[in-house]
Design a protein around this nucleic acid. Structure first.
Lengths: 163, 163
DNA sequence: ATTTAATACATTACATGTTATATAACATGC
DNA sequence: GCATGTTATATAACATGTAATGTATTAAAT
């Protein structure tokens, strides 16, 4: 057994640690999505959710809403277009802007997700860290330990494994 | 101004959010390192720190210590070898294992970092979130707001900008 | 009106994580 | 003592973020 340096170094490695936990959480989230039989990546959801909440948005607005850079948004939107979840058309008043809107298929996915998947994920994450309190380093340690003990997919309420 | 969906969705986008904050923190950390004139990447530090703490380690042990997968460790160690900070030699008893140790240059870097850079980074991060308390989502919001208000490099104690 | 600057998006190159798999060295069972 | 499985590392292919830069369109200035 080797010491977990990132954890040991505390504030010094806070960036690495947050990233690491975030990656782990997102991977777990993906598993819940996959088990539900949906064909979408966890990282693509926020884009659809943003449009669902605000109506059609441009690439730049989406990047801002999701908190990544514009090239990243351009790529992800390209994937969602390919998957048929969104539609793109130039803004009527400004040919530079491209307005991204949900297709019917995209709206269906969101509607279904809101009912079935999102509550499950949110509940699992809340189960993992919703009741935590105190200094952030302690909470992160608790989250890491919690994930090691039971991944998100085993914390989903809908996942009742009764015979 | 567009709504920050990841933030709005709370537990549902916790993974994305942690990752995003972690990336931001690491980028800020890199800036502090660069300003100090050191030629190393923030993500490479934990590897050197692990060896400094535990003595020579194998690739697999390093991956475990740093919390990434083995191919990632192999690549980073390759970079550190290229930079002259570490040395690699097969373990005497098992030719499959490759023991990674610090070179003099690597040890110098660590010694200097311990004195000058690490305390600065840890202090800046502590300044950012050391006094926080309460539910994690609130702390994350405070950290995001704090980073937006003043990046890590402007929170480093050594960064005294008196005339 | 035509030049010039700014804006929105696309593209390229790169960084750093992952999974899947190949290869070499060690361990085991017969 | 050789076949077979396991382990440690390397490599390849891919995912998803970034920064830097190109290109088309709009806005502004003279």
């Amino acid at each position: 057994m080797v010491e977990d340096v990132v954890r040991t170094l505390g504030f010094l490695c806070m960036g690495s640690r947050l990233r690491r936990i975030g990656e782990r959480l997102q991977a777990d989230t993906q598993q819940v999505i996959d088990e539900a039989g949906l064909s979408i990546q966890a990282g693509q959801y926020p884009f659809l959710a943003a449009i669902d909440r605000a109506g059609p948005l441009t690439i730049g607005e989406l990047a801002q809403a999701v908190g990544i850079t514009q090239p990243g948004a351009t790529r992800t939107i390209g994937q969602l277009l390919e998957l048929g979840y969104v539609d793109i058309q130039p803004a009527p008043d400004d040919q530079r802007r491209r307005l991204v809107s949900l297709t019917d298929k995209g709206q269906d996915l969101i509607n279904h997700s809101k009912k079935v998947i999102w509550p499950r994920i949110a509940a699992a994450v809340a189960d993992l860290c919703g009741d935590l309190d105190g200094p952030i380093l302690e909470q992160l340690a608790a989250i890491e330990d919690g994930l090691a003990a039971a991944p998100l997919a085993r914390r989903s309420p809908a996942k009742e494994e009764n015979a």
